[in-house]
Nucleic acid binder design. Structure first.
Lengths: 202, 202
DNA sequence: GTCTATATAGGGATAGAC
DNA sequence: GTCTATCCCTATATAGAC
């Protein structure tokens, strides 16, 4: 029979733990999450879990890393290019994730927080990614050049984060409407009062 | 000598505790804050503190209440009308406060969270307040009516929250620039490419 | 690779003295 | 109004058996 690699089972369990931890961190926050609960979700005792991750902090950072990794892969697979709207859509599909990232981002503003480095590195990357997308749209003549790409990227990211925060508290909030609205304002050839072309949905 | 009211000293201490708690909740989050630490900051023992507040949850809700109250009063004193930009400015002056509200808002999305009710009530009020401000500007002909006031309010609030979140992580973020930018986009009489009037700074 | 048992620390909350 | 002392719970992390 097929001989399995030496770490076959361990790797599978590791991944299982990461997914369970993601869910629970999202639901309870970093401090609110107990490793026991994560362990139990994986039919493991606490020391069993700590065989894979040396500390709670270690677990968190690896969860965040995995999260960004899968998001990146999924995006590239689909379009070859990251789409700004995907950031929003993804959130809507997995509520807990939005909460995880918003609350983590806030908590991580403390330089002592285990996730500080992660978010400090992540934002500039996101900004540059969105700026690139915006620049391309401008080159194609589909977006006003009134606001420089870098500044517009900050604005769009802020809008995305903020609308997700509002949605967290009031689930009836329409997350796509404000995005549509701002793209309408940004469309070229508008005159400030009349009909504007429906912006494309991506 | 002047006879003090029966609760003179108690009220002063109460207020002192609320201010200390605000700071510490902001720095450490709800779960991360220990009542002992709050007590120590006020030169009090834990039971000393619990003489004033029956539980940690009680303390949190009263902190949030006080916070909104003072913000409201300050606004009304200054202009008689709430200004959208004040929301941002206020945040910039007291960093911990931004973190408190963003992280609390995220954590409070859980209906079980002690602050859930507070935020659930707060957002609609803010939205209506901003919508009123927007409506007035539209009536004066200083703002495009392309987007209805209620929808624009959602967008502006999201932008404010989001930019504060970005600023939490990267303190070099300019919190006023995106606000200026969006108001420029919203100004009437623009043509989508040329010079736009500098939006007023209030 | 996973367990039981335990060390160590800290949390919220209460009883009862002063 | 404030204290000391204490209860009981839960947390992370480790030691050492299987």
């Amino acid at each position: 029979m097929a001989k399995r690699g030496p770490y076959e089972k361990g790797e599978a369990k590791r991944t299982e733990i990461l997914h369970a931890a993601l869910e629970i961190f999202a639901a309870e926050g970093y401090r609110g999450t107990s490793l026991r609960k994560v362990a139990a979700r994986c039919n493991l005792s606490l020391p069993g879990l700590m065989h894979y991750f040396s500390s709670k902090e270690d677990l968190l950072t690896q969860v965040l890393r995995m999260r960004d990794e899968t998001a990146r892969v999924r995006q590239t697979e689909r379009t070859g290019e990251p789409s700004y709207r995907d950031i929003i859509r993804e959130g809507a599909q997995t509520p807990g994730l939005v909460e995880l990232f918003v609350s983590m981002a806030a908590a991580a503003s403390d330089p002592e927080h285990p996730a500080h480095a992660h978010f400090a590195e992540r934002y500039p990357v996101l900004r540059e990614r969105v700026a690139g997308y915006v620049r391309q749209r401008m080159d194609e003549g589909r977006l006003t050049t009134e606001i420089p790409p870098e500044r517009l990227a900050v604005l769009l990211l802020a809008l995305a984060d903020g609308i997700q925060l509002q949605w967290l508290i009031d689930r009836s909030t329409d997350m796509e409407q404000p995005i549509d609205d701002v793209f309408r304002l940004l469309a070229v050839g508008r005159d400030g009062g009349g009909e504007a072309p429906e912006p494309e949905r991506e």
